[in-house]
Each structure stands twice: as C-alpha cells, then as structure tokens.
C-alpha cells in the first residue's frame, strides 16, 4: 500500500534531482566553456581497402594491446570480407572479427552455416577493416546520461570507466556498431585509437601490426602529415555519411556494398 506520506516522499525525491542539476549546469558553464589552449592535433585514420589482405594481425594486436578478452566474441576493430558474385549477390562475413584472419574460402553465415562460392563466380571480393570513426559529432556522446563518454580536444572519443553506469545507450546510438559491453570492467567499450600510444608519439597497435600499410593514423591539422595529404589529394569516402556524424576514418577504395 502506498501511503500519502510515501507518495510525497517519492515526488519530493523526483523533484530534487532536476532541481539539483539545474545548479550544476549553470549558465556560465554551458554558454562559455573554458577556453582550451589552442590544440593543434586532430587524430584521423585512413584505411586502404585494396592493401588489406585479411590477415587479421591488426585485430589480434588490438585485442592484446587493449586487454579485450581474447576468446570472447568482442573486438574494438575487425575486418569484414565482401564477396560479390556474378549473379549480383553480396556475401559478407567477419568470423570472430577476423582475429585469426580469413583462412578459407567459405563464407561464414552464422546459424545458416557456411556458404561455398566457386572462384569463377566471384565478380568482386575484398576486405574492409573497421574501427571507431571518432566522429566529429559523435551520437554516442550525445546520448550518455552521465557524462562518461566524451570527445577529447584532439578528437578521440573516450569512455570513463569509473563513471560509466553501463546503461548501453551509447551502444545503441552508434550507427557503426563499434561499441560493446566490456565483460570484465562492465562498462561500455570502444576503440580509442590506442590513446595511450598516440599520446606518447607511437602509432596505434593496429597500424603497427599491419604488414601491408593498409592502416594509417595521422594529424589532420598538420599540413605536412602524409595522412593529411592523402585526404586532400586522393579519392576518399567515409561510412554512412548520411547520418551526419562526420566520421574521421577515411577509406580508400570504398565500395557501395559496404555498410
């Protein structure tokens, strides 16, 4: 039974929360965010899909480097295989995120089993590595109710593991599906361009691991950076441009079948 007293208690508690937050998000804070020192770094990424051979060394290195449980079917970066047949069908797979590469011709269709495609039926086939796009307008950050995920001044979206409550809104909000739930820390998890490496002058684990230079990381605010030059001079594409997220992972050799 809810007594009148209980009801009053509950409604008071409910009213207190928005009232309290009104104080914290004071006008000065929101309208005039502190002027940060002039940042001259904006990390961006290039993926050359033609160079990718699907060996999955990047996925393996990423999992080791970032302590993503190795045998769980979760990963911060993964490689997709696309096979387009002459009769117009599109097949795509990424077994275990390509942690062990692509060691056979059969397409892994999950519960539907494996699909064999004969060599002569192949019209086009290629690999597409995926990772967090570190969007300029990240929808995952917008939806976080507690301020646990944010964009740093150098453009990387991070998750505060102490502050994340594990609600999963960000996982749902990401149109690229790059976020997942970390089973050990029990918080949202995602690629952060190996923030601990790039801020020490190293490259990300996946970039270093790739023997074929299919991945590159650079600073788009540096006009002499090779990555900046490629973005300026080559034909590049981004994923799901129509979502307005302004992704910062650029693809060379992209194809319309890639989602």
């Amino acid at each position: 039974m809810i007594t009148r007293r209980d009801l009053i208690k509950v409604s008071i508690a409910g009213a207190a929360v928005p009232l309290a937050s009104a104080k914290i998000i004071s006008a000065a804070d929101t309208l005039f965010p502190e002027r940060f020192e002039k940042q001259n770094i904006r990390w961006v990424f290039i993926v050359d899909t033609k160079k990718c051979v699907g060996c999955g060394m990047c996925v393996k290195a990423c999992k080791d480097e970032n302590e993503v449980p190795y045998d769980a079917n979760i990963t911060r970066t993964w490689v997709e295989r696309y096979v387009l047949t002459k009769d117009g069908q599109v097949f795509a797979d990424s077994p275990k995120g390509a942690r062990d590469g692509f060691t056979g011709k059969k397409i892994d269709r999950g519960e539907k089993g494996f699909h064999d495609i004969k060599d002569e039926e192949i019209q086009k086939a290629f690999f597409v590595p995926k990772l967090c796009n570190q969007c300029e307008s990240p929808p995952c950050v917008q939806v976080c109710p507690v301020g646990a995920t944010y964009k740093t001044e150098d453009g990387v979206v991070l998750v505060d593991r102490k502050w994340c409550i594990g609600c999963g809104y960000c996982i749902m909000a990401c149109p690229y599906g790059v976020r997942f739930f970390h089973p050990v820390h029990r918080v949202a998890e995602k690629c952060n361009f190996c923030y601990h490496r790039i801020t020490k002058g190293m490259k990300t684990a996946c970039v270093e691991a790739c023997p074929f230079d299919a991945r590159m990381i650079g600073n788009i605010k540096d006009p002499d950076d090779p990555v900046t030059k490629i973005i300026q001079n080559e034909r590049i594409a981004v994923l799901k441009e129509e979502y307005g997220t302004n992704p910062q992972v650029y693809y060379l050799g992209m194809s319309k079948e890639v989602r």
Partner: peptide, 9 residues
C-alpha cells in the same frame, strides 16, 4: 590460404 580476390592485394 589462397583467396582469389581480384580487388584485394
């Protein structure tokens, strides 16, 4: 493992 994928190295 041989994968004859023309658009990939």
């Amino acid at each position: 493992s041989s994968l004859p994928y023309p658009q990939s190295d």
